[in-house]
Design a protein around this nucleic acid. Sequence first.
RNA 1: GCGCCGUUGGUCCAGUGGUAGGACAUUAGCUUCCCAAGCUAAUAGCCCGGGUUCAAUUCCCGGACGGCGCACCA
Length: 578
Amino acid sequence: MTELDDLAELAKRRGFFFPSNEAYGGTAGFYTYGPEGAALKRNLEDTWRDIFVREEGHMELEAPTVMPEAVFEASGHLDGFDDMIIECVECGATHRADHLVEDAVEDIEDAEAYEPEEVAELIADHGIECPSCGASLADTDVEEFNLMFGTNIGPGSSSPGYLRPETAQGIFVEFPRLKEYARNQLPFGVAQIGRAYRNEISPRRALVRVREFTQAELEHFIDPETDDPPLERVADVEVPLYSAESQNADDGGVETYTVGEAVEEGVIGSEWVAYYLGRAMDFYERIGIDMDRFRYRQHLSGERAHYAADCWDAETELGGNWVEVTGFAYRSDYDLSKHGEYSGEDFTLFRQYDEPKTVERATVDPDMSYLGPEFGGAAGDVADALESLAGRDRSAFDGEEVTVEVDGESYTVPVEKTGFSVEEQTEAGEHITPHVVEPSFGVGRLVYSVLIHRHGTDEVDGEQRAFLDLPADIAPTTVAVFPLMTKDGLDDRAEELAHELRENGFEVAYDDTGNIGRRYRRQDEVGTPYCVTVDYETLEDGTVTVRERDSTDQTRVAVDELPGALRQLVGGATLSEL
RNA sequence: GCGCCGUUGGUCCAGUGGUAGGACAUUAGCUUCCCAAGCUAAUAGCCCGGGUUCAAUUCCCGGACGGCGCACCA
């Protein structure tokens, strides 16, 4: 069995995660986190929150998962996620119909924007053949497949909506209100942990490609001209970088840089992306990713979105494959500009100049009582055209008359009727659209990575043992309490102790079945870092044994001091330091 | 979505045209004073639908789910 098979077995048997709806045959691409998995996932999310919200001083929100169609027209997901698929009747292969057209027809580069019927016509007109078998595709239908789950908002179908394909849009669309909340001051960051949905064609590999997943995303809004990240905080953090250059080189590989070096040498193009690559290292280490099976991979120029200046993925190695667990993107002003344009709302911020600027500005104030009678219905458009011409080319107003074109018609206006003038104006600042730095984490993939990286076996007293050496503050259960025997009041005392520890805020498991060794192994398998056993000595002197998962060593601790001792242990102390 | 392979107690597997067996796990009892021990017992299964057949878990067809390859992957 491979490590992936081993883990799938453990995940099902011990309740980390399993396919959903198995009673009804299962539903591909959906997983349920069982008791252990849900706790592990929550601890991971809390750690993320601690670093990317609390430590960074960002804010967190929670947006709906269903959003109206207009949002995705603006974001580009309606077109961008809309694949046109054509299936060859001869060989059964499926191809992206829009790509076939783009490849075959020289002056079409954006076939995605066409209707499926138009694409089918183009395929017929240009005699495009199946790339796999060479059969003609002329009479084959082009089918649409959108990766977004659609639904209707309210009764009827007049108000289509979609399950969000990424949590980010829930932040972007609320920007006008969020900037008010931030008192119109850049920079500020808004985070969200939530579900996103993609109707994948082919879900695969357990939690890696699923149809419903959890994202933890940060949208850091910055002024690209004036805001710099506090790079000094991460300058010495070491990051394993697999640059685009290395990927293209025959002998290229992962090279370790400090964040400071990587920025200086230009390996990482954006200081903001570099900053978060550094910050995220802390996160990956805290949740237990094996850093020998981890790298940052730069996107090749071909896979980068057109608006992204520089883009890196964090990848973990799972069963011999590298899996993307986080995307770090510099999204520029793309998203906010789009929403500003489509919604008509103000997605900009006002940036004051250090000192007000005095500028000469050419303006017009057309005499509408002249333009109206002269040009009728076109008068308004003519006035607009004059204004835009004044901004563009004030010399056009040097003569007696000025001519503008509206809808192909020429209109000539005497300059004196345009109210043209050049005035000095004082400007206190300008409106800018913030840029966005986006680290976007796939929580399920991280849970899966941690489980695989921390799952292992060793030998204790000649017997094989399976364990998860999860970090103590990430493990679903922090401490398990056992009575050595279920008699002589040991079990009552142990149950009491379990209750006391719960009152002290610990995640506690209680187990009194089977022999003590079996109970230790059960806890090792789900990653519980500490076990406490009540024995006969406890009844005499009030001490218990504390047993450590990784070493299986034990020490005696007074029950009164147990909560404090456990806190020390979780905080990194060793048994001998107690 | 296409192709190949697969699906048997909770888990991992064996097996059969006459409805099944093991290991581990689980539960109970005995035993046991710290690492999956032993003994006894109990619980529990042939993915779904259709077809062939006297009879289908087994053969055939379709579906669901899974693995791998192709395609897809903001």
